[in-house]
């Protein structure tokens, strides 16, 4: 259920519904390009919201639904997330 909750860092953010969460994540990745999990967490917190469940679990669900892509960026040495049309240089991790 949406509402004001305490997340794992203790901050009080509004929890997004799954639909809202997907919109926010996709919009962030379109706007800012590929991001790490921590960057997405920080970006949502900066907007005073957080994903349903934990950010990483929500992102893995979006990946399974093919709403976002995720993979290891070997050059940056991190796991990154992106959306169609906003892939990292080279088309994203295979």
């Amino acid at each position: 259920m949406p509402g004001r909750t305490q997340d794992s860092t203790g901050s009080a953010d509004r929890e997004l519904t799954p639909q809202e969460g997907e919109q926010v994540i996709v919009s962030l990745l379109r706007e800012l390009g590929p991001m790490t999990t921590n960057q997405i967490t920080a970006a949502t917190q900066a907007r005073g919201v957080h994903c349903p469940d934990s950010t990483v679990k929500f992102l893995t669900k979006l990946k399974a639904k093919k709403a976002v892509h995720g993979g290891v960026d070997r050059q940056k040495g991190t796991w990154i997330w992106w959306v169609e049309g906003h892939a990292p240089q080279g088309g994203g991790p295979k």
């Binding site: 790490t36 999990t37 921590n38 990483v56 893995t60 995720g70 993979g71 290891v72 991190t78 796991w79």
Partner: peptide, 13 residues
């Protein structure tokens, strides 16, 4: 290293 990054990479690779 982030623990979720490790787990997702283990799964992916």
């Amino acid at each position: 290293l982030e623990v979720h990054d490790i787990a997702m990479t283990l799964d992916e690779l």
